[in-house]
Each structure stands twice: as structure tokens, then as C-alpha cells.
Design a protein around this nucleic acid. Structure first.
Lengths: 338, 338
DNA sequence: ATGAAAGCGCTAACAG
DNA sequence: CTGTTAGCGCTTTCAT
């Protein structure tokens, strides 16, 4: 049985569909529709369990009450937590979230934006991959609200919410140096995105500030889509070839998790043979014996700022077309010593 | 600037919109449209970067190429991993995923189904909360594909993919008993859903099979939305009041993670003072010192079976209306000894 | 082999 | 205060 339509409601109530539509959209008051009619119509709506067809509504009004969320990988706890928070707030405003994972593939990312576009999502929340700048530019040109996060695209005049990655590794490295470490390794991922670059710079700058030479051989970039065994082999090599390493800073949580596995295999004793700092907190680090210090990103706040900006833009999109300033939010990471 | 419509393409190519539509939908051949026209139209489509408006298409055809995913909490790694797998396969078939978290609240769950319905999603993947049976029944009555997972609703004739929860705790408990444990505590969550009930039954049955009496005081049910500190206090009490506990089985991964924190505080030494088994694997358990044994659910396979069933139903929904048998998939957990 | 036209369900300008 | 009506962009039947 097909669901009831506005027409059915109208005929059953002996009113026009306009009347029903107005009541549905809370414009009954403004249109001075009689209380009696309003109540009658609402009773029938309830009786038939009628819900307006959002697709038809979208076609007519041009907005879908849907926000597109594009991240690298929704199963990464960092993104999953943000997704959850965003969903929560969006839901309260009647918005739904459609998500997609780019796997850091610009082609897929472009394709996803295309798909979302054809589905007419009202706004985009994107953790950008390199090479996607033009697609985002096009969105912006069409006055569609966009917020990017996690990574910034410095060339783009777009809302963003990022964490100060440079400072994150800077304070972590400084901490290691202050506690007397001399040979600090840095393990990162082979992605030349703004955020990873800055994490490297923070590490290097701290070393320089302490007049310690940056040693290329203590720096390892693991390929993004490297297999588990390749990653392990690469890390293994790093530690075996450089037994003088007395501390290691991992630039992502999943690398740190892999690294801990490798160190365990090598029977390196953490805090005795060497110190470990991870980036992005995770239960693993808190419960590890010994616990692992981390650079923590304020996930809740990231999510909140993102969705606030989106909802703000969404609310004002039909209002004054005054060119709103873009929001540039840079949050500070914190170092959690354990 | 508004995006191009099929009309624009048609007029620019001097053909009717029908022709364009046929070409768009791969029906050009069948309609024997000349090659010249096809090529001309396609060139113009590419030139204008035209993509069909999926909303209009949906209104007309009644399908949105969107699947609604309703879980308890998308940020839970179990659900996030499944979400990722499902997204992947769905994407390849041109489907997008809209997700929502129920927070185990039947009211919210109902509301979500309502929202998805009004958005005309083509199919539902649901980790059901109690009290939602009727809403699912209604979906089924409307011949909308539904797959439920994680928890079964025994009263419903609906596709499901679940893991044998009874057997999961049974084998874990048996393992503990075989290694000579006598006072095995069971920590679970205060949710009387099929899946949690079965985990309790598996534990109890194993004890009975070994002629060991089930002791109520070694069983603790933490409230679902209990605060961290309350949960910790409750666990603390359990271990302090019952120093004879020589093993503990946690029925969820997040409870086990909290439990490990508490045991750490109590300075209990794992594998010496007592053994610990968790439910659902997690990096935390693998990397823990000592590593924690777990009952592992085959996440990949769960996701695969779910999406396969959904896509199958979606593909056959317009075909013969023969009443397809519902798929009942029960997967086996494995015990990972560490 | 191609075009005209109806209509999916809804909103909102306009007319009474 | 309420009704009529014109689309939103697309698919598809029917006609040519």
C-alpha cells in the first residue's frame, strides 16, 4: 500500500492541499487558518500516519536537509567519533548525515562530491585529500556551505577547523628533549598533506631550537596504504639499524599502535630502553603498560565547531547574501604525560 | 549559477529531452538512437559537466539509491568497521549510506526510521533496539528490504545476520573452567536484548555443564548509560567484595576496557591474580601487557553478509514478486587465546 | 528513431 | 482565510 500523500489528507479533510501544506509547514498561523481546520487536519494526519515525502519536498525547495560527510576512513576512531558528534547535533536540527570514505584517493573523493552534488546535499563537511581543491572551489562558487577539517588547504578561502599540528609535535618533541633524550626518531605516514607536513616541521623545529641536528636516518615515512607486514618490516628496520634511538614520536595513532607491536617483538622496554609518544589519544595508550604519553586532539571541540559553522551557514544561506567571513578555527592540541 | 538540466542539454543538442534521457539511462541502443546523436549529446553532457539531478530522478522512480544504516553508536569500533565495509560495497553498486545512531533509545530509533522513510531510502540495515519490532514489521509490510544484525528479533520474519552469542561466552567460560578456574565473574550491560541474554546464558550453561553453581554475586550488570565513575565504582565493588574471583568474563569490549582500568587501579595482576577474557576484539587487548584473550566476532564477514543480502534484495525487488525466503545467517565467534 | 506530454508529491505565488 | 495552479527535473508511455 502506497503511503498517504498530501492530496489524500486534503480530500479526506475537505480542504485544499494548500491548506494542508501550510499547516504542515507551520505557516497556518501566518495564513490565519482557523483553529478548527488546523485541528481537524492534524487529526487526520495522525490517523493516517502521514509523513511528507521529503524527496518531493527537496525537489521543490532545493534543499534536502542532508549534510555530506567526506572523510578518509569512517572506521578510524578519530573520524568515527567526530561523525557521531556531528550526527547528534545535526539530528536535533532535522538534518541527516550521509558519509563516505575517500581512502585518501582523490579520484574517489571527486566522485563522491559528484554523487553528493547530484543528491543535492545542503552542505559538505570534508577532511580533504590533496588534489581536491578545485572541486571544493566549485562548491564554494555555487554558494554551498563547506567546512573542511583535520587538514587545511591553505590556498582556499574556506571555513576550516584544524588542530595546530606544528605545535603538537613541537611540544611533544620539546618534552622529550627536556627529559634528556638525544636520538629522537620520528615515524610518520607518506602523505604530503598540510597536516602531516606540519607535524614533521614541529618535530624538526624543536630539535633545531635545542641545537640538535635533524637526522634523516631517524625519520621514517611509512607508505599510506602499505600492508601490515611491510609497515612492520619498515619499523623493525628503523629500530634495529639505530639502536641509539632513545625516544620515538609517532605522527598518527595507528602508526603508534603498529609501532608498539613492533617494539614488543623486539623486546624493547618502554620508558627504559626508549620513550614513546603517540599522536591522537586512544584507549590503547591509556591502558598500555606502561601507559603511553600522547598528543591529544580535542575531538569534541572539533566536532562542535564544525557543526556549528555548518548550521550557521545553513541558517543564513537564504538570508542576507552578504559575504560572510569564512571561519578559521585553529584548536590547540594538548600533551598528556603518562 | 544553477547546474545544467536535462532540458539545457536537449536544447543545446537540438534533440528532445526524451532522447537525452534515453542516452543517460543506457537505453539508447534499445531505442535505436543514431550513433551520431548519441555522441553529440554525450559530448555536450561532458562539456557542461552535467549530472542528472538524483532528487528529481528519485521522485519519479521512487528509489533513492540510498541505504539507511541504523546502529546503536556509529563511533563504536564494531559498528564503525561494519559501516565502512558496507559503504565500500554499496558504493560500487552506486548506493550511498545514511547513518544514524539510536543510543539504544527506542523513541529515537522510531523517529529515525520515520525520517528515513520520508527520505525514501531503498533499504534498511538495522542493529535493532527493543521495542522497534512494529516499526520493522511495517517496513516489511511495505516490501522494503531490511536486514537486521548484531541482535536478532526472534518474533520477526526478517533477514538477519548475527553471531552465536551463546556459544561465544560458552567457549570462553569453558576455556576458563578447563584451566581450573573456579570463581568466574561475569560483567555485562543492563540491556535485556536477545544478544546480551544469550551471552549470559552461554556463561551459565558452561558453569552448569561443569557442575559449578552460578553465583549471583559474581554477576554484575552495569547500566547502559551509566557514567564512567559509576561504572568504575560498580566494578570496583565487584572485585573488592569477592577477592576469590580468579577469572572474569566481560560481555562487551567497552566494559572490558573499563574493567582493565579498574583492575589496574586495584593492582590486580592479570594472569596471576585472575584471568580476563573480553568480548569483541580491539587493539587494546592485543597490545595489552599481558595480552588479553577475547571472543572475536567476524566483523568482515558480518558486513559482507549484510550488504550481500541487501543488494540481492534490492536487485530483485522489482523482479518477480515471489516471496523470497528470508536469510538467516548465524556466524560463529572464535576464541582467541593470548 | 525521435518527440510531446503526463505526472511523481510538494510548495508558494496569486487569486479570490 | 482557502483554493487554483504552475512548476521543481526527470522517466516513460504513447504517438508519429
Amino acid at each position: 500500500m502506497k503511503p498517504a500523500s498530501i492530496k489524500d489528507i486534503a480530500s479526506k479533510a475537505n480542504v485544499s492541499i494548500t491548506t494542508v501544506s501550510f499547516i504542515l509547514n507551520g505557516k497556518a498561523e501566518k495564513m490565519r487558518i482557523s483553529k478548527a481546520v488546523i485541528e481537524k487536519v492534524q487529526a487526520i494526519i495522525k490517523e493516517l500516519g502521514f509523513t511528507p515525502n521529503q524527496v518531493a519536498r527537496s525537489l521543490r525547495t532545493g534543499n534536502t536537509k542532508t549534510i555530506g560527510l567526506i572523510v578518509e576512513d569512517i572506521s578510524n576512531p578519530f573520524f568515527a567519533s567526530i561523525a557521531r558528534k556531528i550526527e547528534d547535533k545535526a539530528y536535533k536540527k532535522g538534518y541527516k548525515i550521509s558519509y563516505s570514505s575517500t581512502e585518501n584517493d582523490p579520484v574517489k573523493a571527486k566522485d563522491l562530491i559528484e554523487m553528493f552534488k547530484s543528491r543535492q546535499v545542503d552542505a559538505y563537511i570534508i577532511a580533504p585529500v590533496p588534489g581536491i581543491e578545485n572541486d571544493i572551489k566549485r562548491l564554494l562558487a555555487d554558494k554551498i556551505p563547506v567546512v573542511i577539517f583535520d587538514r587545511n588547504l591553505p590556498d582556499l578561502e574556506v571555513n576550516f577547523v584544524v588542530v595546530d599540528n606544528f605545535n603538537g609535535t613541537y611540544i611533544a618533541t620539546k618534552h622529550l628533549l627536556d627529559s634528556g633524550k638525544k636520538n629522537i626518531a620520528f615515524v610518520t605516514v607518506d602523505l604530503h598533506v598540510d597536516q602531516m607536513n606540519n607535524r614533521l616541521f614541529g618535530y624538526e623545529k624543536a630539535l633545531q631550537d635545542y641545537n640538535i641536528q635533524v637526522r634523516k636516518d631517524l625519520y621514517t615515512a611509512v607508505k599510506f596504504d602499505s600492508s601490515d607486514s611491510n609497515t612492520n618490516a619498515q619499523l623493525m628496520t628503523l629500530f634495529e639499524n639505530n639502536p641509539e634511538i632513545d625516544a620515538v614520536l609517532f605522527s598518527t595513532n595507528y602508526l603508534a599502535i603498529k609501532g608498539l607491536g613492533v617494539l614488543k617483538q623486539l623486546k624493547k622496554e618502554i620508558n627504559k630502553d626508549l620513550s614513546v609518544i603517540a599522536y591522537d589519544d586512544h584507549d590503547v595508550f591509556r591502558l598500555h603498560s606502561p601507559p603511553i604519553s600522547v598528543v591529544d586532539q580535542p575531538i569534541e571541540e572539533i566536532a562542535e565547531r564544525i557543526i556549528d559553522i555548518v548550521l550557521l551557514e545553513l541558517a543564513s544561506v537564504n538570508k542576507a547574501v552578504k559575504n560572510r567571513e569564512v571561519s578559521k578555527v585553529i584548536l590547540q592540541p594538548t600533551f598528556i604525560e603518562r
